[in-house]
Design a binder for these strands. Structure first.
Lengths: 105, 105
DNA sequence: CAAGACTGGTTTGTATTGCAGACTAGTATG
DNA sequence: CATACTAGTCTGCAATACAAACCAGTCTTG
């Protein structure tokens, strides 16, 4: 029925993607604080997004401490744009379409 | 974290509510065809929406055949407005907020 | 009048998944 | 040495969504 991308639609991931879309890249802790998710959850959602090809995850080090960087991939950007369009279409107060009820004959 | 109303956020129900918001009332079969849901599913979602106080369900008869009419309640309209606002805020391409990464000292 | 289709459901069973919290592991700090 | 931080993985629970089966009454038609 609706063409809403479920991977993106989930509020946690939607929040992550929206955050990433406004920033070149973000680290794990930044996302953790901004989203309010638990670590486990954030980690899982990032993996789902990575599996979907929507984010790129780069595991680096700050000195010897791990630093995980996340950024939206081109596909992720495209999917987000597409999602936004679908959502806009749905939320758009559409003009009275037609009369839904067939009254008794 | 996100203030998205889960009752409304679910795509099936979002579709139903969006349909209802553009029409004074709709019957069961109209919603069935427009949403593409199965009967059981539509029925269940309508019950959830009714329990949430977002729709009013009126069971009448067309002659001797049952006719179920559904319309958005005032609370439903308000909740939908509020949902739309939240969603707009999230989808709004926000300006570069801040630099998320703290670089090594 | 019997068979099938239509209206409008309810019930059941399955499969997914979101989520919190526990646990891991290496590094750093007091 | 004990604690805390980064970044996870794993486990287990609870909530859904969904399809499909079933139900009950009505109407249609051969």
């Amino acid at each position: 029925m609706s063409e809403l991308n479920r991977v993106i639609h989930e509020p946690a991931r939607l929040t992550i993607i929206a955050l990433l879309s406004s920033v070149k890249e973000a680290d794990f802790l930044y996302l953790l604080r901004e989203t309010g998710l638990t670590k486990g959850n954030l980690s899982t959602h990032l993996i789902r997004l990575e599996e979907a090809g929507y984010v790129e995850i780069e595991k680096t080090f700050r000195g010897k401490i791990p630093l995980t960087l996340v950024r939206l991939s081109p596909e992720g950007k495209a999917a987000f744009q597409s999602y936004r369009k679908s959502m806009k279409d749905i939320l758009e107060p559409s003009k009275m379409r037609r009369v839904p009820v067939q009254l008794p004959t």
